[in-house]
Write a protein that binds this DNA or RNA. Structure first.
Length: 402
DNA sequence: TCTGGGGTCCTAGGACCC
DNA sequence: TCTGGGGTCCTAGGACCC
């Protein structure tokens, strides 16, 4: 009997870096990292090639968002500070991030998948889940392979993504989202990994617990302290023991996950809960000494969130701020207003009231403004002249349709 | 040479109401 | 005077993910 469900997880390979390589093919095969601000734009040399900045001597606060596989071989990876990366891979080419371009390719690859399999859950700019269970041919047996049908479908999807974008992706196919997320990583880049429950012990149990989506640095460390390093070792624990250590909810989930169990559906549309804008300063600012600069940034953040809300057609009732201090301690404050709003002045005013509730003796590294408890904006006629975007089509979240 | 920006979800305590 | 539950909303922090 074939499994009840076939869920695919599709992950674009080194997405940002790969999009940049389409623009700068002369960098193919070289160590390249994406990150930092606007200061290191490539300079055209007139012959179709460019002069690029390298990591050597980089100063500033950025981190790597994506590194090519050649750069990863030098020991740098996403999330690593650029100054630290510069010490490890000074010769690596450094390119600035261009989210516009990545969003364009994101829409293209998702559309290419949707042509063949429309039941898609968005998981951000470079990955999706796809429910293939009810796709024609997915349950077919091909050349005595009971998984042949779904394997062929996945290959079609990979080819269509490549045709539409020039980019490669990796796909994991299993009976659920948890295992597919793990499987898509097993044969990166350009992978296609199909697992059934029969493969659990051989392919999943040897992996470190941190490979499981939902086990982060904290839970990983707590498990390590209990002598649990691999998914298989986690699966040796009783549910009761895990509930005792991690609580009913998370402990119970750890038990299920270790046995490859996950019934979550592929969710094709969800409403946003909050929108926010934040910025990390080049140097830490002091509330009193840098009052003018801080105030200007604060107002700009409020205006940006308000504009984001209006563009997407939402209003929100909870307005809040986020501060990160020089010692990296983070605090938030929020308040709920009477009427949901997307008005920049209202957001700025409420955010200002929140700021008054924070002790500002330490220097500030990051400032953010957030609007939550979102609702769809009321029809334009009731509030003013602003035209409102219509609701996104089914199967596409605001991210995709933007 | 520390650690970006944009999200979601969960927990937990207190207020307030029935 | 002392004693209940249950439910919802609000706020703050934290884990985790891309």
């Amino acid at each position: 009997m074939p499994p009840r469900r076939w869920i695919a997880h599709l992950d674009m390979d080194a997405f940002y870096a790969s999009v940049e390589l389409l623009r700068y093919p002369e960098l193919l095969g070289q160590p390249v990292v994406i990150g930092g601000g606007r200061r290191h734009q490539p300079v055209p040399l007139g012959d179709g090639t460019h002069r690029f900045a390298t990591l050597a001597g980089y100063t500033g606060r950025g981190v790597i968002t994506t590194a090519t596989y050649a750069a990863r071989d030098l020991g740098v990876h996403s999330g690593m500070g650029l100054m630290k990366s510069a010490l490890r891979a000074p010769q690596a080419v450094l390119l600035p991030v261009d989210f516009e371009q990545y969003r364009l390719y994101s829409r293209r690859f998702k559309a290419a998948v949707a042509e063949l399999a429309p039941v898609i859950e968005d998981r951000g700019i470079d990955e999706i889940y796809i429910d293939l269970s009810d796709q024609p041919g997915a349950q077919d047996c091909v050349a005595h392979d009971p998984c042949g049908g779904v394997r062929a479908l996945a290959l079609d999807i990979k080819n269509n993504v490549k045709r539409a974008t020039g980019l490669s992706c990796s796909i994991g196919i299993t009976p659920n989202k948890l295992l597919s997320k793990i499987a898509s990583e097993l044969d990166k880049p350009d992978g296609l990994t199909l697992l059934t429950m029969d493969d659990l012990a051989e392919r999943v149990w040897p992996l470190p617990v941190r490979k499981v989506n939902g086990i982060g640095p904290k839970a990983g460390a707590r498990l390590a302290a209990l002598g649990i390093e691999t998914v298989g070792e986690l699966a040796l624990q009783t549910r009761e023991a895990l509930v005792l250590s991690f609580g009913k909810s998370y402990g119970g989930w750890l038990f299920e996950a270790s046995h490859g169990l996950d019934e979550r559906p592929v969710v094709t549309f969800s409403e946003p809960v909050s929108m926010s804008r934040e910025t990390t300063f080049e140097r830490d600012l002091h509330a009193r000494r840098d009052k003018a600069e801080l105030g200007a940034v604060f107002t700009e953040l409020a205006q940006q969130v308000a504009a984001d809300l209006q563009k997407k057609g939402y209003v929100g009732r909870t307005i809040g701020i986020k501060l990160r201090f020089e010692d990296f301690k983070t605090v938030t404050r929020d308040m709920t207003v009477e009427t949901a709003t997307a008005d920049p002045a209202t957001v700025r005013l409420a955010a200002g009231l929140c700021l008054k509730r924070v002790d500002l003796s330490r220097r500030i590294r990051l400032l953010g403004v957030r609007v939550g408890a979102l609702q769809r904006a009321p029809p334009a006629g009731l509030v003013g002249l602003r035209p409102l975007p219509s609701a996104p089509p089914l199967h596409l979240t605001p991210e995709v349709s933007s």
